[in-house]
Amino acid sequence: MKNLIQKGLGIALIALFTVSFTTIKRETKQIDTSKSNVEWKAYKVTGSHNGTVSIKSGYLTFDDNKLSGGSITIDMTTINTTDLTGEYKNKLDGHLKSKDFFGVETYETSSLNFTKVKTTGKNAYEVTANLTIKGITKKVQFSISIYGSKATANLKVDRTKFDIKYGSSSFFDNLKDKAIYDEFDLVADLQLN
Rank of each mutant, 00 (worst) to 15 (best):
T160W: 01
S111C: 14
D177W: 05
V127K: 06
V53I: 11
K165Y: 01
L92V: 10
S145P: 11
A42F: 00
Y166G: 04
S48A: 06
T61C: 06
H95D: 15
V117T: 15
V140T: 04
K99H: 08
R159P: 01
K176Y: 08
Q141L: 01
S68I: 09
I79M: 04
N123A: 13
N90L: 11
L84F: 03
V45A: 04
N90V: 06
D63M: 13
V117F: 11
G47Q: 02
K44L: 02
V45S: 03
A129R: 12
E183D: 07
D64P: 08
V53G: 00
K41H: 02
T52E: 00
K161N: 00
G167F: 14
S68G: 07
Y147R: 11
Y43F: 06
S111P: 11
G70A: 12
V45G: 02
I164M: 04
A179D: 10
N113G: 13
V157L: 05
E87M: 08
Y59I: 07
K118H: 05
S110I: 09
Q141A: 06
T152H: 05
G121N: 09
D75E: 01
I164S: 00
V104D: 07
K176V: 11
N65E: 13
K139C: 01
I136G: 00
F162V: 00
A124C: 09
Y147M: 15
A151S: 05
Y107H: 15
S68N: 12
I146Q: 13
G58C: 13
I144D: 10
I146F: 05
Y88S: 08
V187K: 05
I144F: 12
V127P: 07
D177P: 08
E105Y: 01
Y43M: 04
T152E: 05
V117N: 11
T85Q: 02
N80M: 02
K91A: 15
K178E: 07
D182M: 05
S170T: 14
D93H: 08
I133E: 00
A124Q: 15
K56D: 09
F101Q: 03
S149K: 12
T115Y: 11
L155Q: 05
Y166N: 08
D93A: 01
E87K: 05
K176W: 10
G94W: 14
T78Y: 05
L175T: 15
K99A: 14
T82Q: 05
G58N: 10
L92C: 08
S169C: 15
S169F: 15
L96I: 12
F102N: 00
K99P: 15
K134F: 00
S57H: 08
V140P: 03
N65Y: 10
N174V: 13
